[in-house]
Computed example of a mutant assay.
Amino acid sequence: MGMVQDKVVVVTGAGAGIGRDFAKAFAANGAKVVVNDLARDKESGQALAESVVAEIREAGGQAVAAVESVAEWDSAHKIVQAALDSFGRIDCIVNNAGIVRDRFIFNMSKEEWQAVVDVHLNGSFYMTRAAAPHFKSQESGSYVHMTSTSGLIGNLGQGNYSAAKMGIVGLSKSIALDMARFKVRSNCIAPWAWTAMTAGIPADTPEEKARVEKLKKMESAKIAPLAVYLASDRADKVSGQIFGVRANEIYFFSQIRMMRSMHRGDGWTPEMIADEAMPAFEASFFDNVPSMKLTPWDPV
């Protein structure tokens, strides 16, 4: 018996990379998997999702493909319906689908912004919303969302991606609160992995090339066990949390809470804020640095 035996799990963006690893890990742990991906092989034209389904079935697992976009309301509902039609229920949504359109804010186009937000943030909501009534009626279910340190900390040239990934954290928190009484859970994972989405990292200088070689050691398959656990009944007390996986490390992230406060009985003027409040708060200010500065890694 696997940890998610007979649970029906939808994994979006599962045609390659982290999503493919998720789909295969869920199937290996007893789940019935809906493999979602819109992409097709450039040479054969075959849907990548169908290739992953074939891999799972060859290994003795159960899976079906859903070649639909998460970025549209109707097609997201079709993905969930594929689970219901094929397996009769839905137990977990893994919101993994994603794209990047990296550009500095002063050069980013409306289309580059919209495309990333549509897939990551809107797609996560559409998939969540499509499954929510079923989770509510059966009083069980789990959401696992992919966030990123680009959102949690910040990163250069990724305003669209960072905003979407931080938005997913807020979405997950709201899901956890809204659906707690129906025994439905929601959590986030910030994955470190070398995938097609990170393959575009610049590698022009010797230092950049060395960094990329280190990143390649972050195997995407190492992230899957945490996703499987979060979907399982063993995680019934885990909701509204943010985790990370980097190779053989598992992280637990803090969340935003008030740190300091000042009070004046007669209120504040702009001058008082400048003279009193900001000097008191300044020692607690966070440095404005990209995520890689706060998450260095020396693989062993």
Rank of each mutant, 00 (worst) to 15 (best):
G265E: 15
A199Q: 14
K237Q: 14
P270K: 08
S239E: 11
V238H: 07
R181Y: 12
L215G: 07
I189Y: 06
A193C: 07
S220W: 03
R264V: 00
V228R: 05
R234I: 00
K222N: 15
D204V: 04
S239W: 09
M272H: 05
T195V: 05
M258A: 12
V212P: 01
E219A: 13
K216W: 02
M179R: 11
D236P: 00
L215A: 03
I250E: 11
A196G: 14
L177H: 12
R211T: 00
A247I: 04
D275M: 10
D233L: 07
V238Y: 05
R211M: 07
E276P: 04
E271T: 13
I242D: 01
P270Q: 11
S232L: 06
T205G: 02
I189G: 04
F243G: 03
I175M: 14
V212H: 04
I223S: 08
K214D: 01
L215R: 13
D275L: 10
I189C: 08
A199M: 06
G244D: 11
E208C: 01
A224Y: 00
K209Q: 11
D204K: 12
E219I: 04
W192P: 03
E249A: 13
R211F: 05
G240M: 07
F253D: 06
L177D: 13
D275G: 09
A227S: 04
S220N: 12
A277V: 13
S220F: 03
M262P: 05
E249D: 15
D204G: 15
F243V: 04
K216E: 02
H263N: 13
P225L: 13
M197T: 07
V184Q: 08
E271V: 12
F182G: 00
R257T: 14
V184W: 09
V212C: 02
A247N: 13
W194Q: 10
F253R: 10
E219W: 07
G267W: 05
